[in-house]
Design a protein around this nucleic acid. Structure first.
Length: 856
RNA sequence: GCGCGAGUGGCGGAAUUGGUAUACGCGCAAGAUUAAGGAUCUUGUGCCGCAAGGCUUGGGGGUUCGAGUCCCCCCUCGCGCACCA
């Protein structure tokens, strides 16, 4: 043994790899599917899922094992509690970062991806997670992305019907709709619209991937430019994506984030005629009741009607303004948002409700991407319009009377309609209803629901992604037959971005040519594609006939009370990206009859961020990054697992502390020494304190409290408090001269989901000394111990005595003592009497088993 | 600006329905053991005070026999959205 080995408080580096190998060779965490010979259909299912990692070249960081340990503990616990547990792992390996890493290291992304996956898999295996590796998925594997492409074809060949359900396009064909009409309704469609183009990344990005006008990946500037792109019609599901959040056991904050992102608002479309012409302008407003207060209109500078409406006198000013807006990036546009700007077009519109002529302006505070790209401005009751009207001295009219005492100028809440003709005297909600009906009767408008959510820009101009199963011929697109899947990307030596919007796949001239007259689509899918459905693939990862077998899907996703994934753990960063996209795809698959539930993830838990020791976010530049491998080699995998769970509540962000790691390491060493003792030469052998005797009452009480609390805490994911209870239990055993073997064995079962290697090793060590007491097999195959409520009952309990709410004395009283008896004992207490100062008790409150409060 | 969440010892953090605030761990101190210990074990450890006692859950008010927990006002920090009509 080397000197560094001797310094170890217990030989984890010896037994941890040994048990990992034993589990692997015994296939200990194999999870059978319905139909498999070893499948037990009588057991309930539990599907516990992690957000699968992107296998970066950096390897695992300490944030990964946080969520993975949490799910591993609950998975192992559920297995011991009689569930069939599905707890898989895989790789989200397509996408920009993988490609950039490959370019940087001068290798093919296929090579780097495989290497990185190998590294990640090895690291995870060294942490002893109970995954069924036979279910491993890899989004870049043709056997996997075949089905990603297949789902895309389903989207392409589907539309949303009148009641909001996805249905096959064949239905529209049967109705005799034209090609153009059908294309306009596909869930995957081609659009020529301004998109987020990032020159630095050489690709377009989804709205969700652009943060403050910069790319989420890398932070590069993003510009708007019109390009022909594939879109997914997620907006058709906007309402369902909001409504169906209600039944989910998710953090309210995440639900709120999604609701806000989808951004539903109720209002009306109102159509204004343009003075001296045939044109009309439709606006969206949430406050149709303020129509009488509209004193001007504003169009977005990009609004298509602007050139037509602009008068000769204003043309130059308008064009200058349009140019200045266009030259600004989104970032600049928001930065400069403080000061309102705009120019009049010279044209006028007619307010339909009172025939007033109001000027039409353009201003960049009106966005082309929201509503109709045009607004009616009601400066009296809208902050932005108010600011604009003040700056350009436009009239401000009151049409809402605020409640008593408030200034009407800029009042935006509900009130009572005034100066509004037939609406006068109506409260805002009634006024909204009345004007909407009036508009509808006159054909001037319509009640409408508007969403902030935009359709999902689904194509990228990069190499490392799923090619679209689409070909083009005579300017028309069509899906390739399913039999041609998977469509592999071409093998390209030079896969770098072209520097233009032309995708790199264009360089593969042979591949591009689908037939003499047809060419392949050159774009690839975004990274999110593969992660939209990977949880389904886990249910039946090897299936080559179907994206997931029907029986497997029904059991793992359909079984249980609400169905779906029973627990999904991951970071908040996916609140509106992955979690929204995956819900969308799942709903389509549900409507088409391929999956059993409308929602994929029943219960969601977000783990908090792990900060550096300095309380700052971990980053290489700050030099505060903790490498899990170092922790494992110095303290062992069990210590890392346990520390990550002991740091604090899972959901909370918390700083790392090496001292804290040592703390749990010492705890595990104490557990080790419950069973093992060391001789002069440093050799370990079974402890002589370990005896096959009956456990005494106080020790048994702690043990059963531990069984109870740990079971409850695992269900609640309160691992930190569960661990503290195990520490209490261990301290009690340590302090006992004799350690009853059966009690220690029971404790090891409770410990095993948290520290599986140590539990397994000590269980086996005890088996050598007490063969009759330890069954063959792994601890993980044992059942979770049942706690005995009788063991928790005590004969005497401590009751505290208060005088006027202040603690003055304590006493042990028989557990069965009546209220009257306890009160008597309390009033007899010298301390209590002292603080009563001879005054009579006005009132005595007795809480049995807890306290007595004497009020004087 | 709007929305959400959180403020408890020197530090990470515990506290059923309102019922002993500070569990557990870290750190610190003393002792035991030891050739030695960055090992282990034992004991102590919220603050002020010699003590009796008093004070204490971001600050202020309130409800209550009793408030970290419930209600009102304010402050600080974190996260999200950010001209969404």
């Amino acid at each position: 043994m080397s000197s560094s080995e001797q310094r170890k408080a217990f030989p984890f580096s010896d037994f941890e790899p040994r048990w990992q190998a034993e589990w692997e060779s015994a296939n200990a965490f194999h999870t059978p599917n319905p139909g498999d010979p070893d499948f037990d259909a009588s057991k309930p299912k539990y599907f516990v899922l992690d957000m699968f990692p992107y296998p970066s070249g950096q390897g695992l960081h300490v944030g990964h094992p946080e969520g993975y340990t949490a799910t591993d503990i609950i998975g192992r616990f559920k297995k011991m509690s009689g569930f069939n547990v599905l707890h898989p792992m895989g790789w989200d390996a397509f996408g920009l970062p993988a490609e950039q890493y490959a370019i940087k290291t001068g290798q093919h992304p296929r090579t780097t991806t495989e290497k990185n996956i190998e590294g990640f898999r090895g690291q995870l295996k060294r942490l002893g997670f109970a995954y069924d590796w036979a279910r491993e998925v890899n989004t870049t594997d043709p056997g996997y992305f075949k089905w990603t492409q297949w789902i895309f074809l389903k989207l392409y060949h589907s539309y949303v019907n009148e009641v909001g359900k996805a249905r096959p396009i064949a239905e529209l064909e049967a109705q005799g709709l034209s090609r153009a009409e059908i294309d306009a309704r596909r869930l995957a469609y081609v659009s020529e619209a301004p998109v987020n183009w990032c020159p630095e990344l050489g690709t377009v990005l989804a709205n969700e991937e652009v943060v403050d006008g910069k790319s989420e990946v890398g932070g590069f500037p993003v510009e708007r430019r019109p390009m022909r792109q594939w879109m997914l019609r997620i907006t058709a599901f906007a309402q369902r994506l909001i409504d169906e959040l209600d039944g989910l056991d998710w953090p309210e904050s995440i639900k709120l984030l999604q609701r806000n992102w989808i951004g539903r608002s109720e209002g009306a479309h109102v159509t204004f005629g343009v003075a001296d012409g045939e044109d009309t302008i439709t606006v969206f407003t949430t406050r149709p009741d303020t129509l009488f207060g509209a004193t001007y209109m504003v169009l977005s500078p990009e609004h298509p009607l602007v050139p037509k409406l602009t008068t000769e006198a204003q043309r130059e000013a308008v064009e200058v303004y349009q140019k200045s807006v266009a030259s600004k990036s989104d970032l600049e546009r928001t930065e400069l948002a403080k000061e309102k700007s705009g120019v009049p077009t010279g044209a006028f519109a007619i307010n339909p409700v009172n025939e007033e002529k109001i000027p039409i302006w353009i201003a960049d505070y009106v966005l082309m991407g929201y509503g109709t790209g045009a607004i009616m401005a009601v400066p009296g009751h809208d902050e932005r319009d108010f600011e604009f009207a003040q700056k350009f001295e436009l009239p401000i009219k009151q049409v809402v009377q605020p409640p008593e005492g408030k200034d009407w100028q800029g009042f935006t809440d509900d009130g009572v309609a005034v100066h509004s003709g037939f609406l006068d005297g109506l409260a805002t909600p009634e006024a909204k209803a009345k004007i909407t009906t009036w508009l509808e009767e006159k054909g001037l408008g319509k009640g409408t629901v508007n969403f902030k959510l935009r359709d999902w820009l689904f194509s990228r101009q990069r190499y490392w992604g799923e090619p679209f199963p689409i070909v083009w011929e005579d300017g028309e697109h069509r899906g390739i037959p399913e039999t041609e899947l998977p469509l592999l990307p071409p093998t390209l030596e030079d896969f770098k971005p072209t520097g233009t919007p032309e995708p790199p796949l264009s360089k593969a001239t042979d591949w591009v040519q689908y037939s003499e007259t047809a060419k392949r689509e050159l774009n690839t899918m975004p990274q999110w594609a593969g992660s939209c459905w990977y949880y389904l693939r886990y249910c039946d990862a090897q299936n080559s006939e179907r994206f997931v077998g029907e029986a497997a899907e029904k059991y793992w996703m359909g079984g249980g009370k609400p169905g779906g994934v029973d627990l999904y753990v991951g970071g908040t960063e996916h609140a509106v990206l992955h979690l929204l996209y995956a819900r969308f795809w799942h709903k389509v698959l549900f409507d088409l009859g391929y999956v059993s539930t409308p929602e994929p993830f029943q219960r969601l838990v977000n783990q908090g961020l792990i900060m550096g020791e300095d309380g700052q976010k971990m980053s290489k530049s700050r030099g505060n990054v903790v490498n899990p491998d170092d922790v494992v080699s110095e303290y062992g995998a069990d210590s890392l697992r346990l520390y990550e769970m002991f740091m604090g509540p899972l959901e909370q962000s918390k700083p790392w502390s090496m001292k804290g790691v040592e703390g749990v390491y010492r705890f595990l060493a104490r557990v080790w020494r419950l069973v093992m003792e060391v001789d002069e030469e440093g050799r370990w052998s079974i402890s002589t304190a370990l005896k096959d005797v009956e456990i005494d009452k106080p020790l048994n009480k702690v043990l059963h409290e531990t069984i109870k609390k740990c079971g409850e805490d695992i269900e609640k994911l309160s691992f930190n408090t569960g661990i503290s209870q195990m520490m209490v239990c261990t301290n009690a055993f340590t302090q006992s001269e004799v350690r009853p073997v059966t009690g220690v064995l029971t404790f090891l079962r409770v410990l095993s989901p948290f520290a599986p290697h140590l539990a397994e090793e000590l269980n086996a060590q005890i088996r050598t000394a007490f063969p009759a007491l330890v069954p063959e097999g792994f601890v993980s195959d044992l059942t979770w111990p049942v706690f005995d409520p009788a063991a928790l009952v005590e004969d005497e309990i401590e009751v505290v005595f208060q005088v006027n709410g202040k603690l003055r004395d304590k006493a042990r009283v028989p557990a069965k003592a009546s209220k009257e008896e306890i009160e008597k004992i309390a009033l007899a207490s010298a301390k209590v009497q002292e603080f009563m100062e001879g005054k009579p008790a006005r009132k005595v409150i007795v809480v049995p088993g807890k306290l007595v409060n004497v009020v004087v």
